[in-house]
């Protein structure tokens, strides 16, 4: 069964989210706002990954669904899962990395706030030569 909307719809929404994220990253002065822009960009990439996994034919290089291993005590196999699952796994990795990135970024922002009294990214230039 085809989904209710076509691939182009999802790609256009993702492109728009990406543009909004880029605009937020470029124009905001507040470091927390810049972090929000990064989250928008990551979300748009994730939409693309899941949409391609849903619609587009998997590459032949994604390989077979399982590879048998010859063992003395009988047959075993490394199970690879369906080819489209790769897109979902990538999306899950993006979510994992976004969580790690947000935690570390917030720690850094709190440290900057304590030592400099503000989170304006234009004013954090103590390392500038």
């Amino acid at each position: 069964m085809m989904p209710v909307a076509s691939l182009e719809w999802f790609l256009m929404i993702a492109a728009f989210l990406f543009a909004c994220g880029i605009y937020t990253i470029l124009t905001r002065k507040n470091a927390v706002s810049v972090l929000m822009g990064v989250e928008l960009v990551l979300n748009s990439a994730n939409i693309n990954l899941v949409a391609f996994a849903r619609f587009v034919k998997p590459a032949a290089s994604l390989g077979p669904q399982s590879v048998p291993i010859p063992m003395e005590s009988g047959a075993a196999a490394v199970i690879y899962g369906a080819p489209w699952a790769s897109g979902h796994v990538f999306a899950a990795f993006v979510i994992i990395l976004a969580a790690a990135e947000a935690a570390v970024a917030l720690g850094i922002i709190l440290g900057i706030y304590r030592s400099m009294g503000g989170v304006d990214v234009d004013e954090v230039s103590a390392l500038k030569g």
């Binding site: 034919k57 490394v78 899962g81 979902h88």
Partner: peptide, 27 residues
């Protein structure tokens, strides 16, 4: 997005967690 000729092959709308688990624990 609009001008590329995507090679469409929609997958069946099955529950995903089993295949994701296989991919995580295998490949």
């Amino acid at each position: 997005a609009l001008r590329t000729d995507w090679e469409l092959d929609p997958r069946p709308a099955v529950p995903t967690s089993q295949e994701i688990g296989k991919a995580f624990m295998g490949k």
